[in-house]
């Protein structure tokens, strides 16, 4: 697989949220505003890229039996860096993401990619994989957060989109809205895939 294909893989074919359903806790919890979604996506991407670089460099040094604990220590180190950096430079966002920043450490997407990809590929390929997955994760978070923020408050990134006439659906920014909007988005994407497969079969 070429480097570009590795990158593109995470954007759609193996999209972490919509196709693999990985890392769902932060996806549902922090997507109350598009800004929070973007911040979470960038934080996760940073941890993913840094940990895949380190682990792909150390992949021939780490004994197979203590693989998982070693990965966890590397990941936890970068998570701590992100946590303290955000508290220092973006305290408001760190406040609203609260425990979900330290919880990046148990995001199965990160451990999963390190185990499945970085531990058996070169550094350059791992960086492309991490960037693809990170960007894929981020756009998924931003889309879901934008839908919830738009329907729940009439705004996206704090800019008013829907005017006074729109009766805001308060439930969308509350927990039930997270489950329902992600469920509906998943169903729509599945339907698109089904239609596309039907069209391809129709052409044949």
């Amino acid at each position: 697989m070429s480097l570009l294909n590795i990158f593109k893989n995470g954007l759609w074919n193996e999209h972490p949220i919509f196709r693999l359903l990985l890392g769902m806790c932060p996806v549902l919890a922090v997507t109350t505003t598009a800004e929070n979604g973007l911040a979470m996506g960038l934080a996760t991407t940073f941890v993913l890229v840094s940990s895949e670089i380190v682990i792909s460099l150390l992949r021939n040094v780490i004994p197979a039996r203590v693989r998982i604990p070693s990965f966890i220590v590397v990941i936890a180190t970068f998570v701590t860096i992100v946590d303290y950096t955000m508290m220092a430079f973006a305290p408001a966002i760190a406040e609203s993401l609260s425990i979900f920043i330290p919880l990046i450490v148990v995001n199965c997407l990160i451990l999963g990619r390190n185990e499945a990809f970085a531990s058996r590929n070169t550094t350059l390929r791992s960086i492309m994989d991490a960037l693809g997955m990170g960007v894929g994760f981020t756009w998924g978070l931003v889309i879901l957060a934008a839908v919830r923020e738009l329907l729940g408050t009439g705004e996206v990134f704090g800019f008013t989109i829907l005017g006074e006439w729109f009766p805001t659906w308060n439930v969308m920014v509350l927990p039930p809205g997270a489950f329902i909007s992600l469920g509906v988005i998943l169903a729509l994407l599945n339907q698109l895939i089904i239609w596309r497969e039907q069209r391809i079969q129709g052409v044949k």
Partner: peptide
């Protein structure tokens, strides 16, 4: 299209 993850999430909602 609703099978699997989608309907489970809506029910959870």
């Amino acid at each position: 299209a609703l099978r699997g993850g989608a309907i489970t999430l809506i029910m959870a909602g």
